[in-house]
Nucleic acid binder design. Structure first.
Length: 556
DNA sequence: GCCGTTTTCGGCCCGACTGTTTTCAGTCG
């Protein structure tokens, strides 16, 4: 059992206990243990072998016994017992925004509703409003929530789909006679939401490939098998298709299957793909198509084909251009790891600098720093910096933009920092005019350097807030403020459209992982893909600049 | 459930919004 799987079970146990109206602090203990296990650097199995599971903070003797039971048997007694007592449908209902454990238990007791279908039917029939404390508004929110849930089941975030595609590819590659393999489709193009995972395989003998695909442990279902393809379902409801071609057909098929559909139809229009057999690379395919090589992230028919005809594509930002990172959290607020850990992880990534930007005081729930703690943290950073060679930790803050557009620290505190990211974490439902004015006020503050996750969207969970983006871009340009591409795969905010527009105006972009633990730094790659989808070049992105130049830009 | 130790019991980040009420419970971040 992996750490993730243990964490998942602990979380489900917390949900089930909560639905049973168990002691809220017991529930909290399970959630905390889940979070700790999830962020743990070491494999739990190794901790277990050292007999040290009970030494993990937040894990006492009872939690330890259950985790050890999971590692030994794949489950635990309490989990099995709760599964028996709490219908799965109640857990499904928890993912509807606005429905918590109390409401769900109430609906279960009053109306006997224990799954989403019954819930939807009851809402449509106007039965929900007969329950005390619930009205027409709740009914319509439930229907909206179920709709959103259905939509989110259609597509998976890139952060889940891309690693799944890579793991699956690694498994298939082990079959004998595989000549080449690659994830293709929207995963390869770096789209934030992925409908299905496509994998292209080149081999002489397709039988081996088929057998290898079917043997993969994550495959839940095989829905169709053709001469040269297999379709089915992976865990987490992810659809997949494995496409098999002969080795001589690999590279033109790579271009074909990477898409997008519109792109490929235009590029291959009037072409016989048989004439493209035997190529040695995708570059060669493009050459034969009479085009400059177009990177996968650009293949959306948004002007790239025309540019490629005249050899006029921009040179896109590459992962290796990135030399530092400007937005991470530590255990001073809601991060899992301490300053040293985050610094050494950044050094391992080859970075020259890392900005520590914990939450500000208003964000109580996330352990926001009081002015004093912020000062103390600054001192700790100064001390650490003494030890580093050719690496610098920056003193920063992700400061809350308050409802009225004021910031959560006084200007003199902000002024003392190397870097200030201003972000919205509350009052998501202001109207567009108020929300825009609020953010523009933050942009106008001379001590703010970057605006974090501008639109606040959470993919598959929450739409962006109402905003007049053009007005904000104009203000950001006027005040020379940097916009963040938040690289967390649940956000990817700002999106490629806003980023492209911003860069065209001359607004600089920071790609930030918003990491809450060491591993989180690696999520930057999704932000880089978004930047490439936005046609950003090295010079548009400040993570590629020398530190002096960045600080100069901030404090000009 | 966990934790600490002047307490092995009694605490355990909390403030704001939403929808339902007419003073508040539930949810969320």
């Amino acid at each position: 059992m992996t750490n993730r799987e243990v964490a998942w079970i602990l979380n489900v146990m917390a949900d089930m206990l909560e639905l049973k109206n168990d002691n809220p602090y017991r529930v909290k203990a399970y959630r905390k243990a889940a979070r700790t296990v999830y962020h743990l650097d070491e494999d739990l199995r190794d901790v277990y072998l050292r007999n040290a599971v009970g030494e993990i903070p937040g894990i006492g003797s009872r939690m330890r016994d259950q985790i050890e039971e999971m590692l030994e048997t794949g489950s635990c007694n309490l989990f099995a017992q709760l599964r028996h007592e709490v219908p799965q449908g109640l857990l499904d209902m928890l993912s509807i925004p606005g429905l918590g454990h109390k409401t769900i238990r109430n609906l279960y007791q009053e109306l006997g509703i224990d799954n989403l279908e019954e819930l939807a039917a009851a809402a449509e029939a106007g039965q929900i409003r007969t329950v005390p404390g619930m009205g027409a508004k709740t009914e319509s929110n439930i229907l909206k929530g179920i709709d959103l849930l259905k939509q989110s089941r259609e597509k998976t975030t890139l952060g889940l789909a891309a690693p799944a595609a890579e793991d699956f590819s690694r498994h298939i590659r082990r079959a004998p006679g595989i000549v080449a393999i690659s994830p293709v489709g929207s995963v390869r193009r770096g789209k934030p939401l992925v409908g299905d995972i496509d994998i292209l395989v080149a081999a002489e003998d397709f039988n081996n490939v088929r057998a290898q695909v079917v043997s993969y442990g994550q495959v839940q279902d095989i829905s169709r098998v053709g001469i040269d393809y297999i379709q089915g379902l992976l865990q987490h409801n992810m659809k997949f298709e494995v496409i098999m071609v002969k080795p001589e057909d690999y590279y033109h098929s790579l271009t074909w299957t990477t898409g997008s559909k519109e792109f490929r139809e235009l590029v291959f229009r009037g072409r016989d793909r048989n004439h493209l057999q035997g190529m040695e690379s995708e570059e060669e395919v493009f050459e034969h198509l009479g085009l400059q090589y177009i990177p996968p992230e650009m293949r959306e028919n948004r002007g790239e084909i025309e540019k490629a005809r005249i050899n006029g594509l921009p040179v896109l930002l590459k992962p290796s251009d990135i030399i530092g990172e400007l937005h991470v959290h530590t255990d001073w607020s809601d991060g899992a790891h301490n300053l040293q850990d985050m610094a050494s992880m950044a050094q391992k990534m080859g970075y020259c600098f890392l900005a520590i930007t914990d939450h500000s005081q208003s964000l109580h729930i996330s352990g926001g720093l009081s002015p004093k703690r912020l000062r103390d943290q600054g001192q700790a950073i100064d001390e650490l910096n003494q030890e580093f060679k050719e690496f610098t930790l920056l003193k920063g803050s992700e400061v809350d933009i308050l409802k009225d557009g004021n910031l959560d620290y006084h200007d003199d505190i902000l002024q003392s920092l190397d870097l200030v990211i201003a972000s919205v974490h509350s009052h998501f439902k202001l109207d567009a005019k108020q929300q825009t004015a609020r953010i523009i006020k933050a942009i106008e503050n001379p001590y703010v350097h970057i605006i974090g996750h501008l639109t606040g969207r959470l993919l598959n969970r929450r739409p962006p807030y109402e905003l007049y983006v053009d007005q904000i871009l104009a203000a950001a340009y006027e005040h020379q403020k940097v916009l963040e591409i938040n690289a967390h795969p649940d956000r990817l905010d700002i999106d490629e459209d806003i980023a492209r527009k911003a860069a065209q105006m001359g607004i600089k972009i920071a790609i930030n992982s918003d990491a809450h633990d060491g591993k989180g730094l690696q999520l930057l790659k999704y932000g880089i893909m978004t930047a490439r989808r936005a046609w950003l070049r090295e010079k548009d992105v400040i993570n590629t600049w020398e530190l002096d130049r960045i600080l100069d830009y901030f404090h000009h």
